[in-house]
Every structure is written in C-alpha cells, then in structure tokens.
Amino acid sequence: MSRILVVDDEPQLLRALKINLHARRYSVLTAATGAEALDLAGRQMPEAVLLDLGLPDLDGMDIIRGLRAWSPVPIIVISGRGSALEKVRALDAGADDYLTKPFVMAELLARLRAVLRRPPTGQPPPKAVIGVHEIDVGAATVTGPDGPVRLTPTEWRILTLLLAHPGLLVPGRDILREVWGPEQQAHSNYLRVYFSGLRRKLEPDPARPRHLVTEPGLGYRFEP
C-alpha cells in the first residue's frame, strides 16, 4: 500500500482527495501547512507527495526545494496557479509533474500511478569509490590498497543507505529508523559510534572526513 502525502489548505479538497485515494487502497497522510508537510515527510517517508503551492505559512516552491534537499520522493503539484511561468518554476525546483486546479480526479490518479511506476532512485549503485577504497555493493565487499576491508552488517546498512543518495542530506532520524527501527530514532549516539568506525576504515583522514560528512544537527551526507 503506497503512502501518499497530500498537502493543501482547502479542507474540502483535502477530504475529497483522501476519500478518493483511500478508495483505491492508498495510505494517506494530510497536511494543511508547509511546516506540517515537511515534518510528516521526514517522519513518515511517503512514496509520493501531492502539493498545493498556495499554503498559509510557506511558499510551495520552498517546500519542493526542502524536500529535494534530502529526498527523491515524486512530487505532483496541484495548484490554482496556471501560468506557464509557475509550472516552469515548480518543475525547475524539483517537482515531477504539475496539474492545474480544477482538475479531473481520474487524471490526477493516472499521473500518480505514472510517478509511482518509475524505477526508484534511492537504490545504491552496484559499485562506488570512497577515497582509495572500491565498494562492490552487490558482492558486499570493500577493497583498499592493502586488500579487503571488513564492515559489520550495521556498517553496511548505513553505508548503502548513504550511497543510495549521493550528495544529498540523509537525516539522522531516517538512518536510525531504517537501520534500528522507529523506536530508536532518539538514539543519535548510535550514529556517532558507527560513523566513527566507518571513517576509520574508509576515510584517508578520519579526523577530516571528505566523503562521509556530518551535517551538525541534521544528518549525514555521502560526497563522491
């Protein structure tokens, strides 16, 4: 069951979308403000976002950019702004599709099915390089100048999660949820310990990491 985040400050439209999506067996999250939308997206990890641009607190373009800073989730804009310029701005900011209000529900659902059919972009590449180390994800091996480097299963899970999002911020709470489960999202000390180990094994200078980078208070980033 795909989880869809619907962001709109019109209660009637929000209710209509929720009913129609539930009828087609989607799981639905709803938000009436930009702040609520970004919070839900970070905690619930939807498979797609339906986003109105005219929200009371944040401009929709800023929400698109905020999501794109760390997530490849498909974004379909549903907006009363119908000008070509607005569409170009939204698509350039990172939206995947744009539908002008009022719209036919069947068309919105068809566009949603289309973005959900796309191959996921959050898969780690089959091979990667970190400094002088070659990573073979399929074979689960790391090879350095002195031969194989052993990673623990937990280190592997963290590393492949970062490799799947090169150059993008991965929030610490998302790593904790994916690796240890939702009940462990507050245990940021886990991350400090495991990233220290990964850097000792993979970074040329663990004290000054170039590839496994910490964004203080936010999360971590893999820089190729």
Rank of each mutant, 00 (worst) to 15 (best):
V149C: 07
V142W: 06
M1V: 14
P224W: 04
T152P: 02
P206K: 03
G172F: 07
R81H: 15
P120W: 02
A95D: 06
P74H: 06
L202Q: 11
K87L: 01
V132E: 15
L168D: 07
V149W: 07
L14W: 06
I135L: 11
P56T: 10
W70C: 11
P125C: 04
E86V: 07
V28P: 02
I4R: 01
R199M: 08
A95M: 10
F195D: 10
E223T: 13
G34W: 01
S79E: 04
P153N: 09
D52C: 02
V129A: 14
S83P: 01
S71G: 09
A48I: 08
E47S: 12
V129L: 10
P74W: 02
W180S: 04
K201G: 08
G138W: 00
V104S: 10
L5N: 00
M1G: 15
P126H: 11
M1E: 14
E215T: 12
A93I: 11
E36I: 02
D205N: 14
P74G: 08
A32W: 00
V88A: 13
F195P: 07
P204D: 11
L29G: 01
D205S: 09
Y194D: 10
V7P: 00
G94Y: 04
R157M: 12
W70Q: 11
I64A: 04
L85A: 14
L53S: 03
I135D: 08
L38M: 14
R111G: 04
E178R: 15
S2L: 00
G172P: 05
I63Y: 01
R199V: 10
V137C: 10
L21M: 10
I130R: 06
F195Y: 14
G54W: 01
R157T: 12
V142N: 04
L198R: 09
L159H: 05
P74R: 03
A139F: 02
P145D: 13
P11R: 04
L51V: 05
L67V: 03
L112C: 12
V88H: 06
R210K: 13
P46I: 04
L161G: 02
P166F: 08
H165K: 14
P72M: 00
Y194M: 12
K87T: 09
L191R: 05
G80E: 12
L40H: 05
I158M: 11
